[in-house]
Structure formats: structure tokens, C-alpha cells
Nucleic acid binder design. Structure first.
Lengths: 292, 292
DNA sequence: ACCATTGTTCCGCTATGCAAACCACCACTG
DNA sequence: CAGTGGTGGTTTGCATAGCGGAACAATGGT
């Protein structure tokens, strides 16, 4: 089963304090509340570690400098604790303290973690030439992504040599529900896992849920019928793409997409040319990597 | 002053246990011992957080799967604690537990941290076109790096379109002492900081120290005389390059290099053509980014 | 059956979290 | 310019979460 069931621990104090407000803003990143095991005292869970990492996650594109109070507000962690954790992270090189701004920003330490993972993913080496070929054919970008919380994170991206290309590189986060790669992932995982994730997505945004749900169900049908999912501007109106997922590479479920600007990739081309080619690409990679 | 002065806390138990062995192996990654403040009870330092992150650092290229015992051995953290920390990291998505191997490996969570940092570095956007130009001119790779512990970590890399190119992408770690980019960094920082880092490097490898030291001192002279450092195969016999550093971009000291296979880049070309161009490239970027 | 190896529980003791208090700075404002 | 409120962040004291040595369980190889 998928592993969530944390936080609440971390933010429980904040929910007490702010229980009249919109609770979901407290879970600023992709944090979930755990439902199962109502309040098991998991003596194995190290809160301090979870919280420290949660601080690091607060920083994102466009959130460069954050102070203690802001971090405390976003995470629901009390200020003195944030102060200590942030100080620790700074000593370790994962945060820098900018005297000028009196705020923290991410330090160089965070980079080295991700790279080690990337360099161990065999699928990148194997897939790159095929991806390049498809990118050139479609004049678009081809990427590999894995799930993290409620996002897909790119682990490899290949661009065509066309002058216009998507700017999302390795490490970029895309939402699960509205992108072709996320829908392909959802379509490929076992149903209980999917339901769990969908539940989390629903909780996150009840208002949009009917629309989001419709898109995902369409994705499931597409996946069943044709082996790939589409996203035609549901995430970003100018971007379209197709996605396919496969299990068993590098110990996880891996998804591929091919996407680009809507005015280059017509629906017809996506459905009849690019989609099928992406399916065959993934099949070939699966064979090469000795999937059973 | 640079911020180290941690660990010992983390590994203090191990040094008790193994004090007859070579202590430095305990500090498997780039961990330093703190010298100042002999044993101040730093009530602000959160050991659990430091240790959890230290576990993540154990994984590297070629170290894909690690078990509890191995992690405990590498970090000097007692086994039960490793077990709990690793369990926590797994719940959070920073580690995955491979049933098949009975070991842990890095999870997708680690990726998203680094990306947020990269997307906030203005220097990447500004520098990329200049880097591309120099890469094409020199038929080699041009990168930007920042220091993390005793390594330089790439935050941007641009390759020429030449078929042979270095494979080090964003996130790659290069040693400080033997690469052109590392030497440029060392030459550009204030002397006390440099001495501290050199001390750490010396402690790490006393045997190689005379040779390493000579290379760095040559680098300091080169930097003084010509504005750039060289590395002619001292790190990897087949790779050569030049490096330049600059302070004040994005709140940190940033270094640039241009490097490639030794059989393409002659010493003469590096010294007379590429080095000076890299110096001017960095100067232009400094001006563009409004450095005082 | 035996030992070697690897991971998980137990429980006393201590490191750590956090509420409240405290400090430092700034901007008004009478 | 003292007074006052508002903003940031860092220190105390005490209750408790979580660390870690030793013991335990679960494998696997011989």
C-alpha cells in the first residue's frame, strides 16, 4: 500500500490554533492527513526529521527567501522549533541564511541528494535515445516522471531541436490529476492505490473535483482503449500531451509523456501519431530492461 | 565564517567504539569534525534531523541499495536509530524499501528539493546563452558550480553539439582540490575560509596532501596572474579544464568552468584562448547581474 | 543443528519540543 | 522623542518523545 499517514503529528498544534480557518492552507505543500490508524503512537516515527524536511519543501520556485515566522505559518510548526530546525539545516548546508534579507534560502546541500538518485536510474540511460527520436519526430519534449506525493517529478527530459520547447527540466513537478503523465500513472497503478490518491486530490480541492474527476475518468478510458492518456490544455491551456506508464523499471512505476505547445501538436496528431509511438516506445524500453 | 562544527555529535558513539580504527572512515561522506567550541551543549542543534539527512547522503552513484547495518556502519549511528530514521524517511517518500533486496534506496522525494533551489538561481538564466557560445567555441562543456562541503556541485551545464561530451550534469559532485572549478573557488574565497577547507582536505587524505597542496598553490598563482585556474588531468587523467569564480551572484560564491577531453583541448588552447574567454564571460555576467 | 548476519523490540534516561516569556528592531503618533 | 503597537527572531523550564545498549527474532549459509 502507498505510504502516507503522517503529518497531523506535525501540524496538530496548528489545527488546534487555527481550526476556524481553512485547514487546507496549513498543508501548504503536498501534505496529507492520515486517515487510517487514527492516532497510533507510532514510536518509530521521528517527528523532528519529518519536520526538518518539511521546512525544506516550503521553498519552491518563486519562494526563495522565507523567515522563521513564514515557515512556521506554512508548516504549522511552532516558531521556536522552526528556529532550531532551520538553524540545524543551516549548519548542515541545506539552508543558507541571508544576512541581507534576514531570511533563509535553500543551500547547496539539497542538490547532491537528488543527483545520487538520478544517476542510479537505469531507465534514463536506456530510454534516452528512443526519447530523442520521438522528440525530433514530434517536434516536442519527451520526459520520464515518477510520483512524489500528489505530483509527478521529471527524472529525465529530452527536447527536440525545435526553437520552441517546454522549459520543464529534471526535478520539475507536475500535478497528478490534470497532466497526461499524471493520468497515465494513475491509470497504471492498482485500484486501491488510485482510490487513495484520488481521495487526497479531492480533499485538496473539493470545488474543482467534479471537473478533475471527469478528466481522470476519461484518462482511464483512453488508457484502456488506446494505451495512452491525453491532456489537452487541462493543466495549462497552451500545453498538450500524451502519457504512458509502465511498472517494474527501477523498482517503481515510471511514466512517460510527450508534450508541447498546443499550436504545434494538434489533437489529431497526438491521437494518431504520437500516442501510438509513445506506447511502442515504452513497450520497447520495457523489453530492453528485462521486464517479465 | 564557514559553517561546519557538527558531527562528532552524530558519530560520537562510534568514535568511542572504534577509536582504534581509522576514524576518518566513519565520516564516510564529507563530514567534518568541529574544532571550535569543544563540547558546547548546543541546545539548538537537532541531532535527529542531521542524522536523517546523513543517511540520505550515504546513497551515491553506485550505492543504490543499502541496508540498516550498512547505513549504521557508514554513519556511526546505532542500528535501532537507523532503523527508525530510515522508516521515517520511507514514510515520507525520501527512501523506498525494496522488498526484493530487503534494502533501502532513494525515493522520489529527494528530487523535488533540489529543483526548487535551481529554479531560483538567477545566474543560470543569465549565463546560459554565454555558456552556450563558449561551449560551441571550445567544443567542450561549460558549467556553473557551488560548493557543498568539500565538493563543487554543478547547478548548470551546457554542452557543445560535439558528439563527445562530458557526462556530468546538474547535481554532479566534483572534488574541490583537483578540479579547475574547485581551485577557482578556493582562490576566490577569503583566506581564513580557504585555510579551513584546506585543513579539512588535508585531514581527509594525509598521504596525497603534498601533491594536492602543490596543485592548489599553483592554482592560486594562476588565478593571481591570469584570472583563471587550470586542471590538467589531476582529477581524471583524460579530462582538462579551466575555472573562474565570482562572488556576489545569488548570495554565494559561484564558480564556472570549461572542460573536456584532454585530446581535444590542448594546454595551449586552454591557456591562451579558453581561459581568457571564460574570464571575460564571468566578468560580463557579473556586470549583467548588477554586482557592485 | 549451528553460528553469522541483519533487522526489530524493550525500557531507563536524556535530549528535544513547545508555551510563554523575552529581546531587538521599526514605524507611527501624540 | 518617550510611548506604543507590530513585526521579526531567540532563550527558558518543564513534561515527554525518542535514543540506544542489550536482548530478541528472523533469516541464510554451512
Amino acid at each position: 500500500m502507498l505510504g502516507f499517514k503522517w503529518l497531523d503529528r506535525v501540524a496538530v498544534r496548528a489545527t488546534d490554533d487555527f481550526k476556524e480557518g481553512n485547514v487546507s492552507v496549513l498543508y501548504s505543500n503536498d501534505i496529507e492527513r492520515f486517515d487510517e490508524e487514527p492516532l497510533e503512537k507510532d514510536r518509530q516515527f521521528v517527528t523532528a526529521l519529518a519536520r526538518g524536511l518539511e521546512l525544506l519543501r516550503c521553498f519552491g520556485p518563486g519562494e526563495r527567501y522565507l523567515g522563521v515566522t513564514e515557515l512556521a505559518r506554512r508548516t504549522g510548526i511552532p516558531k521556536p522549533t522552526v528556529s532550531r530546525l532551520a538553524g540545524t539545516l543551516t549548519k548542515l548546508g541545506y539552508l543558507d541564511f541571508s544576512e541581507e534579507h534576514g531570511r533563509y534560502c535553500l543551500g547547496s546541500g539539497v542538490l547532491s541528494l537528488g543527483y545520487a538518485m538520478l544517476s542510479n536510474l537505469d531507465v534514463r540511460r536506456v530510454a534516452r535515445p528512443f526519447m530523442q527520436e520521438l522528440a525530433e519526430f514530434s517536434r516536442a519534449s519527451v520526459s520520464i516522471g515518477v510520483r512524489d506525493r500528489l505530483s509527478m517529478v521529471y527524472v529525465e527530459t529530452v527536447r527536440s531541436s525545435a526553437p520552441i520547447a517546454l522549459q520543464h527540466g529534471v526535478g520539475a513537478r507536475l500535478p497528478l490529476a490534470t497532466t497526461s503523465i499524471g493520468r497515465a500513472y494513475l491509470a497504471a497503478i492498482p485500484e486501491p492505490d488510485r482510490n487513495f490518491l484520488l481521495d487526497q486530490i479531492r480533499i485538496r480541492d473539493e470545488a474543482q473535483w467534479p471537473r478533475i474527476k471527469a478528466g481522470i475518468e476519461q484518462g482511464l478510458r483512453d488508457y484502456e482503449d488506446r494505451g495512452f492518456c491525453l491532456s489537452l490544455g487541462e493543466w495549462n491551456p497552451e500545453i498538450v500531451g500524451v502519457g504512458v506508464a509502465i511498472a517494474g523499471l527501477d523498482d517503481s512505476i515510471t511514466a512517460f509523456n510527450c508534450g508541447g505547445p498546443a499550436y504545434i501538436l494538434t489533437r489529431e496528431k497526438l491521437e494518431n501519431e504520437i500516442g501510438p509511438r509513445l506506447v511502442s516506445l515504452v513497450k520497447r524500453i520495457g523489453n530492453l530492461m528485462g521486464r517479465p
